[in-house]
Every structure is written in C-alpha cells, then in structure tokens.
Simulated assay, not measured.
Amino acid sequence: MPPQGALPPVLKAVQITADFNQGIDGWKGDSSDYSDADKPENLVFEQRALSAPLSGKGYYVAGTNRSDDLFLYVKKQFGGFVPSASYKVTFTVKFATDVPTGCMGVGGSPGESVWVVGAASDIEPKSVINNGRNELNIDRGNQGGGGKAGQVLGTIGNSVPDCGKAVFESKTLKSKEALTVKADAEGKLWLVVGIDSGFESASHLTFQSVVLDAEPVK
C-alpha cells in the first residue's frame, strides 16, 4: 500500500532489455532436470566472443545431457513494476547458433530437440531436489511444452540444412502469445531464458540479447 496521502503507483507498460554484448553482470546460470545418476557434464555459463562471421560478445551456455532431459538457464531479477500487479509478458530472444536443422542424433535432433525457453516469476527460480531429482521450483514447462511461468519460443536449429557443416548464424525467436505473471511485493520480477534438451549429447548456444515486454493487466 502507498503511504497515506500518496498517489497509487501508475500501471504502465514496462520493457526490460538485456544486451549480453555489454556484459552479463547480475546474471547467473544453473541447470536442472536430472538425477544424481545422470548429472550433466561440461557446464559453461560465461560471456564469450561470437564466432565469425558474427561479431561482438554474448552469454555462452553449454552442457552435456546424459539422460533424455536437461535444462540450462540463466536468470536475473529486475525492478520497475508496480508491486503485486499482474502483467502480460512476451519475450524476444536473439542468439547465435551453429547447429544445423534436419539432423539425426541420440534421443533426438541436436537442433529441433533443443528448445529455447523464456520464463518470468515473482519468486527466484532455483534448482531444488524433489524425490531425488533436481528440478526447477517454478512451472516453466518441460521440453516442447510451456507452463504457467514459462513458454517455449522455438528451437536452436539454424537455417543450414548441411549436417556436416557448422555455420554460425543469429536467430531471433518471439513469443506467440502473452504469459500472465505477477510482480512481487517490491515490484520486481525474475527473468529466465534457457535451453531444454532432449538431445542426449552436448548442446550450446550464445544468447545475444533478451527483451521482456510487459503490459499491465487492468
């Protein structure tokens, strides 16, 4: 509640933009969706230079899926929202990928079986142990399906159909519909982007930018 005599906060659209060419300060990476028997290997979350013909830097995310499921994600909390207000949010995610389309792989395709996910939550997304399995504590969905706090934007496969040729391209994915989320009591939201792999081997991509557009629910 606003102080006595103060005007209530004004509901308005909010846009959050993360440009990973400028840095990854405040962002943290983690993994989920596995048990002790199939922990992921070779996890990397760091800013790296983009490979030619691209230029600049991005947030490099990588890991080896040892089962049939692995979620790699990065997160950061942002303010600027009205406390406890509901918003309809959409995501625009740009990333660099050298993974071709139409290729076969163990458990699935390295391109079409690795999904890009956008999520938002009033509570901090964390990897927690549930019945012996490491899982995310928010309902962001799983693999090709979305959840109450997250949605699948597309896959990491690029436009190259040659499975024996790695060519780096930038790819941009956008929400097809809005997701309704609620800001916390301090007017903050956690923004999450990640990749969910059904491909039982190594996956990687480099996030270049993320935009969250939030329209208040009036």
Rank of each mutant, 00 (worst) to 15 (best):
L205D: 05
P9V: 07
I123C: 03
G141K: 02
P53L: 01
Y60F: 15
K75P: 00
D30S: 15
A202P: 01
L136C: 09
N21K: 08
S203F: 04
S203R: 03
G194E: 01
L189G: 09
S121V: 01
V181M: 09
S84T: 13
D213Q: 13
E177R: 10
K171T: 14
G5K: 06
T206P: 02
A96P: 00
K88Q: 12
G164S: 08
N65K: 08
V89H: 04
P216C: 02
L189I: 13
Q4R: 13
P2K: 09
K12F: 00
K165F: 10
V44Q: 12
A85P: 11
K176Q: 14
I129S: 11
K188Y: 10
E112G: 09
V117A: 05
K218T: 11
V117T: 14
G56M: 07
R133Q: 12
P2S: 05
T92N: 08
N65S: 08
E135F: 00
K165P: 00
K75W: 03
G187H: 10
K76A: 10
F71A: 09
S209L: 08
K12P: 00
G150R: 06
L136V: 13
L7D: 13
Q143W: 15
K39V: 12
L72A: 10
G187T: 05
G132R: 07
P53Y: 02
S127V: 06
K88Y: 01
A185Q: 13
S209Q: 07
F91H: 12
T206K: 02
A178G: 11
N65E: 09
P110W: 03
L54V: 02
S121K: 00
S127P: 01
A119T: 04
G154Q: 12
F71K: 09
S35I: 04
R48D: 05
Y60T: 06
I195M: 14
H204A: 14
T92I: 08
V99G: 00
A37Q: 13
V61Y: 03
P100R: 07
